[in-house]
Design a protein around this nucleic acid. Structure first.
Lengths: 343, 343
DNA sequence: GACGACAGTCAAATCGTTTCCACAGAGGGT
DNA sequence: ACCCTCTGTGGAAACGATTTGACTGTCGTC
């Protein structure tokens, strides 16, 4: 916003015939008393000039920018889009603005965004992106956030992350063990697992849940049953294709819905009936889960709600209250892609 | 960021034994000359203190905040998510940050966001959200943006919008006429149309394209053939259901892929074969278009690219160059949901 | 009638930068 | 010897708000 004719508080004050101090008090409805008549004069002056207070200047003196920085892996992924929407709706009434940044799971990029947000004086940092398995990243991030916190900043985590901070997150481990149990109850003993990018903390946690359940329930624990699907539609299809060529199974469980849908399509195209020959289950319950090649049985992880609860946690902390970590557990949505194992 | 121990340029200057002015010059690598030795001293002082310049203070004096406000209808919709990602990638190298706001198609909310962004001193405003058919909204928005522009701001439009501003957009009208022609070539004479929310300018434009093509090609122009699907999966299903009960047709064309997928599923559930009995075509080519109940024939509208080109248009304008409006035309992606009309 | 409390106002300091201006010294050209 | 340019530096004035402290009245109370 270079040049031009910005109207400042001084202009308003002059037009209203009062000091800048008084004008400020009425515009920011401070507790300091102002007489009704001058208040009206200032208000109408502001109105006629189209005055809008400069929040940068205000932030400079109050040391509160009323902005929040959010870091996600990929804003074009509806999983994150939903979270951001929940966050936005949650903080909207409190007059905060949201910066968003997509890190593309690149540790370097993510650290840079954190630095940039700090330079931008955000009041809080939200890590909606999962942690990354990278020692230098974890070390640098911890140091950065520690410094940020000492300077008065607030950080919150909405995923599985090594960062020590107040958090609200999904019970990812529990979600996976529950899905495996669900499959096991239906007679599946060889359940293939399509995992996401191994560098993501969330994938490790989910995979851990799968492994634990397989062991506890005495199912076949076979390395050949797991394959990386990169969290994408195409990756899911490719993963199931290599699984098909490598071993046999009666069910496949994917670490997210996108991969489950990709796998379903690949199976159908290859002529293996879903759920007739192979059952498929996902995780997340994204909007299109019901509209894939076969309506997907999955577990609902309420992303929008995660965002909302993250927002209220944040607001409580900014308000000086004690943070309380929260855990959101999923709920199985039964549709058509899972059935009992063939005997 | 209240309290705490922010380190400012003054601290750096003191530690380095120079004036604030000099410290500023080296930190913001100004063109003003600084000797190599003092530069090193300042740099190492900054390093050891962990100094990060306060961009708010900088913005206040330079009248450049290096931030951009983006307005979308719904950030959880991948259509907008893609655009935002393209924008972000496009401006990232130029050291701009992005504010995003979801207006939910609410005129009041959208105007408030515009005001908030202006108060936040954003250097540019991006309207990725389509215009809304609401006279007061259009008038107020125009006034707001006009004032913003006089104050040195830049506005850019990435959709169909009544706002007069530099723009890059999809050829929505052409997209629809082309899709209708594609269907007509295959012998369809009664093509049903599922439209989006009527208050959206983009829907009007798309619908206009459909109507014009139907007329030009001499197809059946029947009011009973069009129904609102609200741009959603569920809405698409409901729309095709009412269409089915009201009239007959051999093809349905939806104003976006989500509705096309919803319609396809509804048809399949009801036992009408796609494309055997009814062909279905969409618009956008979102990622899951290929993974629906039937792989969808649609027109690719490159949203990510729209965002990127929007970013570069913006940067050119901010750089003082002359804006050039751009039009992006789609490309038909033939998959399996469309076939020739039964005779 | 004196005193304190309080409403109402303003001038000035402050936040952390950038930038304008002044100034000193070095060096080069005539 | 003179002038001019150029490098390198610091002081101080911005930018646009909030907030502190001081100052004037007015009113009620004892």
């Amino acid at each position: 916003m270079t040049g031009g004719s910005r109207v400042s508080l001084r202009h308003v004050a002059e037009l209203a015939g009062v000091s800048v101090a008084t004008a400020s008090r009425v515009m920011s409805d401070s507790s300091h008393p102002v007489s009704g008549s001058t208040r009206d004069r200032v208000l109408s002056a502001a109105e006629s000039l189209g005055f809008e207070p400069n929040r940068l200047a205000r932030a400079l003196v109050t040391a509160r920018s009323q902005t929040i920085g959010v870091i996600v892996h990929d804003i074009s992924d509806p999983y994150f889009g939903d979270i951001v929407k929940g966050l936005e709706d949650g903080i909207h009434a409190s007059d905060y603005r949201l910066f968003v940044a997509s890190s593309d799971r690149d540790p370097e990029k993510e650290l840079n965004y954190v630095r940039a947000f700090q330079a931008q004086q955000v009041d809080a940092l939200v890590f909606a992106a999962s942690g990354l398995n990278d020692p230098t990243y974890e070390r640098d991030l911890t140091a950065l956030v520690e410094r940020y916190r000492r300077a008065g900043g607030v950080a919150v985590v909405l995923s599985d992350h090594s960062l020590a901070a107040p958090r609200v997150r999904f019970d990812n481990r529990g979600a996976l063990t529950e899905m495996v149990a669900y499959l096991a109850e239906r007679g599946h003993r060889r359940v293939a697992y399509i995992t996401g990018p191994p560098e993501l903390a969330v994938c490790e946690v989910r995979f851990g849940g799968y492994r634990a359940a397989v062991k506890d329930l005495g199912l076949d624990a076979d390395e050949a049953l797991v394959e990386d699907g990169r969290f994408t539609l195409r990756g899911g299809g490719e993963a199931v294709a290599t699984l098909l060529g490598r071993t046999d199974f009666t069910a496949v469980l994917a670490a997210n819905d996108l991969m489950a849908i990709g796998a379903t399509r690949e199976l159908v195209v290859r002529g293996v009936a879903v759920p007739g020959s192979v059952s498929v289950a996902g995780l997340d319950d994204i909007a299109i889960a019901e509209y894939g090649p076969v309506p997907l049985t999955t577990m609902r992880l309420p992303t929008y709600e995660l965002g909302q609860r993250g927002a209220s946690l944040l607001l409580r902390i900014l308000d000086g209250q004690e943070p309380d970590d929260q855990l959101i557990v999923g709920e199985i949505i039964e549709r058509e892609s899972v059935t009992s194992a063939p005997v």
